[in-house]
Simulated assay, not measured.
Amino acid sequence: MFAEPIEGWNEWLFALVNADASSPPGLVALARVIAEGAPTLAALMLVLLWVRQGRAVRLALLDATATALVGLAIAQVIVALWYHPRPVELGLGRQFLDHAPEASFPSDHATLLFGLALPLVFERAARPFGLAFLALALGTAWARVYLGVHFPADMLGGLAVALVAGGGIVALRGPLHGRLYPAVLGLYDRVLRKLHLPEALFPRR
Rank of each mutant, 00 (worst) to 15 (best):
F2Y: 14
A3S: 10
E4A: 10
P5W: 10
P5K: 05
P5Y: 08
E7N: 11
W9L: 13
W12M: 09
W12C: 07
W12D: 15
F14P: 15
A15Q: 14
V17A: 12
N18V: 05
A21N: 10
S22R: 09
S22E: 15
S23I: 08
P25W: 07
G26N: 12
G26C: 09
L27R: 10
V28W: 11
A29H: 13
L30K: 04
V33C: 06
V33H: 11
A35N: 12
G37N: 08
A38W: 07
A42Q: 08
L44V: 11
M45N: 11
L46V: 06
L46H: 05
V47Y: 11
V47N: 12
V47W: 08
V51H: 08
Q53H: 04
G54H: 02
A56C: 02
A56E: 13
V57M: 00
R58D: 14
L59A: 08
L61K: 01
L61W: 05
D63A: 00
A64M: 01
T65Q: 00
A66Y: 00
T67I: 02
L69A: 08
L69R: 00
I74K: 07
A75H: 02
V77A: 10
I78A: 03
V79F: 01
P85S: 09
P87G: 14
G91E: 14
R94E: 15
Q95L: 02
D98S: 05
H99A: 14
A100N: 13
E102G: 04
E102F: 00
S104F: 05
F105I: 06
S107P: 01
T111D: 04
L112W: 05
L113V: 08
F114I: 10
G115L: 01
A117I: 02
A117E: 11
A117G: 09
L120M: 05
F122N: 09
R124I: 08
F129K: 02
F129C: 07
F129G: 13
G130K: 04
A135E: 12
L138K: 02
G139F: 03
G139S: 09
T140R: 03
A141K: 04
W142Q: 11
R144L: 12
L147T: 10
G148K: 03
V149K: 06
H150Y: 09
F151P: 14
M155C: 06
M155I: 14
A160L: 09
A160W: 06
A160S: 12
A165T: 05
G167N: 06
L172S: 11
L172E: 13
R173N: 09
P175E: 07
P175G: 04
L176P: 02
L176Q: 04
R179D: 13
L180G: 06
Y181V: 04
A183V: 01
V184C: 06
L185G: 07
Y188T: 08
R190G: 15
R190L: 14
R190Q: 15
R190V: 13
R193N: 14
K194H: 15
K194G: 15
E199Y: 03
L201W: 13
F202E: 15
F202I: 07
P203W: 03
P203K: 01
R204C: 07
R204I: 05
R205N: 14
R205I: 10
